[in-house]
């Protein structure tokens, strides 16, 4: 089942204004900083928040259409929802939490429990079926809440940060299980996440939401190669700057000019990896054409390299080896000369 929505939700001080199309079998990852409207999107699709304008359609079936005065209540929408805070029913044990949906939808109690038990087993909770939510660890509670939404085989899935706040080992196991399930899922899936790993492993396409609006969308590889906002750039680990192109020279703020491989003209975005940035001893007699002076703002170990944050303009992050960091005597406030490898800089229209 596909999902198509034009969402306009207005509240004092906030407006969500986004259009989403998710094809049958597709996993759309919804990304964005806190307060971007991700959870509001899930709530609006689920029918928990009322649309101010717009519509939600699943496979041509109108779930809500403000103009036509149509609005199905949440319980009549063909959706499975995983909420950010698990929200397990505190008075029911793990098994009955999962069995609640099938039972409500008419399954015999014994059958509902059997289906619930099978799902808990699949998610590695076979031994915890009779535990109360307050006795479950964070990871266990999340898996129960996943099982509770997935057991219904709803044709459309809305997953709000299903892997957030899990410990590293649990994340891998649950992500793999979720990946298997989503791979076989014939309907549309909306996956709210802030984890680049989720979007690369689980998502077919990304939509980035900022301030209630879609600022970028595309497949994960496209988005990772050409981020359009600082949020996306940080997420995929790139430096991103605005500049004016004049042939192969791109002028950034602060009088800095980068040389890029492809000639362009006008306003452009330039993106480059921290590994494309090299640091050198500060030049005593001013900078060369392709480098500029900066001060170290912060240092942070990053695998076997050190990620160095440099002050503006233009503020960039650089990855240098431990040896280089030591040789350059990098420490906060240290002056350095910054250069960027032109071959690794991508420029594209904004």
């Amino acid at each position: 089942m596909s999902l198509s929505a034009v969402l306009d939700v207005r509240r004092p001080g906030f407006r969500l204004d986004a259009a989403l199309e998710i094809a049958a079998g597709e996993v759309l990852a919804l990304l964005g900083p806190n307060g971007a409207g991700k959870t509001t999107t899930v709530r609006a699709l689920a029918g928990l928040d009322r649309l101010t304008a717009g519509h939600v359609t699943a496979d041509g079936m109108v779930l809500e259409h403000v103009g036509h005065g149509v609005r199905l209540p949440p319980q009549r929408r063909p959706l499975g929802v995983v909420f950010q805070d698990d929200l397990l029913f505190p008075h029911l044990n793990a098994l009955d939490n999962v069995a609640f949906g099938p039972w409500v939808q008419g399954a015999e109690r014994r059958l509902a429990r059997a289906r619930a038990g099978a799902w808990l087993e699949r998610l590695g909770l076979g031994g915890r079926t009779h535990a109360r939510p307050r006795d479950l660890s964070g990871g266990e509670a999340r898996r129960v809440s996943l099982a509770r939404a997935l057991v219904l085989d709803a044709p459309v899935l809305l997953l709000d940060e299903p892997l957030a706040a899990l410990d590293a080992a649990t994340v891998l196991a649950v992500r793999a299980e979720l990946g298997r399930h989503l791979g076989a899922h014939a309907g549309a899936t909306l996956l709210v996440t802030h984890d680049p790993a989720d979007m690369l492993v689980l998502a077919d396409r990304l939509v980035v939401l900022e301030g209630g609006r879609v600022v970028q969308q595309g497949n994960p590889a496209e988005v990772a190669r050409a981020p359009r906002t600082q949020f996306v750039a940080r997420l995929v680990g790139l430096n991103l700057h605005r500049g004016r192109a004049d042939g192969s020279a791109v002028h950034l703020g602060g009088g800095v000019t980068l040389t890029v491989a492809t000639a362009m003209a006008g306003d452009v975005l330039v993106a480059f990896a921290p590994a494309a940035v090299s640091l050198h001893h500060a030049l005593p007699a001013g900078s060369s054409r392709d480098s500029w002076p900066a001060r170290v703002v912060g240092l942070e170990p990053y695998g076997d390299t050190v990620r160095v944050s440099l002050d503006a303009p233009p503020a960039v992050r650089a990855d240098v080896t431990l040896a280089a960091a030591h040789e350059l005597q990098l420490r906060p406030d240290a002056p350095v000369e910054v250069a960027v490898d032109a071959a690794q800089v991508r420029a594209y229209p904004p």
């Binding site: 949440p74 319980q75 929200l87 029913f89 409500v104 509770r148 939404a149």
Partner: peptide, 26 residues
């Protein structure tokens, strides 16, 4: 937490059923 009622709704429970089986029990 009134969101318990919202969860029940997304699982297919009418408001009356959610009230009886979730809210009242809690």
């Amino acid at each position: 937490d009134r969101r318990n009622e919202e969860v029940a709704a997304t699982l297919g429970a009418s408001p009356w059923l959610a009230f009886r089986r979730v809210t009242l029990a809690i």
